[in-house]
Amino acid sequence: MIVARGLTKTYGPKTAVDHLSFTVEPGRVTGFLGPNGAGKSTTMRMILGLDRPTSGSVTVNGRSYAASPAPLREVGALLEARALHPGRSARDHLRWLAASNGIPRARIDEVLDLVGLEAVADQRVGRFSLGMGQRLGIAVALLGDPPVVVLDEPVNGLDPEGIRWVRRLARELAGQGRTVLVSSHLMSEMALTADHLIVVGRGRMLADCSMSQFIADHAASYVRVRSPRSAEVETLLRQHGLDVDRHDDELRVQGLDAAGIGELVGRAGLHLHELTLVQSSLEDAFMTLTADSVEYAAHPTETAGALR
């Protein structure tokens, strides 16, 4: 279990993490979501005692990370930036980590096997591809068989097969009763992995709820209705107390499902050309939620005209 209370980190004038309070419960995957620069990595570094909070605190299993006698046995972490010497082999990297926390050497082969790096274990990690480096990072995280696992963008650089593997792994770890915190900026990724969501933007908490709650709250849906006599249909639906938005020749109706609307219109003797349930994706919901807190938005280029 990870508990943060009023966690705050400022770098000079910049507030990277702003009074975050949350609890990451064991037995489920908690997705940590936010746009670039939202403060996810900073929060994770504070959990691991790498950065010192400006104020507030964070504990892992009831105590600060640094107070753990053998932290790798307590918390396994995959950090954002590679924390490896490129000249060292994967096995040697795991070897010093294991030594530092009194973990037997046999465990090294176990985790290498687990992440599928046995064949390249003796190669220098500088030659590793992004995905191989990421797999080694996950091997490091699992080295101490820790009850708490913190993964900062674990699927970054992985191929589709690797992405599915990480998803399954996260779910499996949670299923074993471990505490699993996984960060991402992809809502679609989290939708497949997380049971619980913590959404941040500009260091502030935007949402802390279960995945299903998030979907119910944020993923808006409406029924698209087209009719040759749309003005009459609109009046009819409004009379029945439904929300109707007109966009050109289509009506966006909220408050009743598609079947209900179809019957209502049919009974009035009107014809429909389209009746579709439209659900905005979770990605859209996430974008809407974080729209105000995106710092590093791209601006559309205006060179298109010059090319003509």
Partner: peptide, 19 residues
């Protein structure tokens, strides 16, 4: 190592709260 996670079949999705 009994509790070593393996990347085998996907486990059933547990409920959102630890049951």
């Amino acid at each position: 190592m009994s509790a070593t996670p393996t990347a085998s079949a996907a486990p059933p999705r547990p409920a959102s709260t630890p049951g």
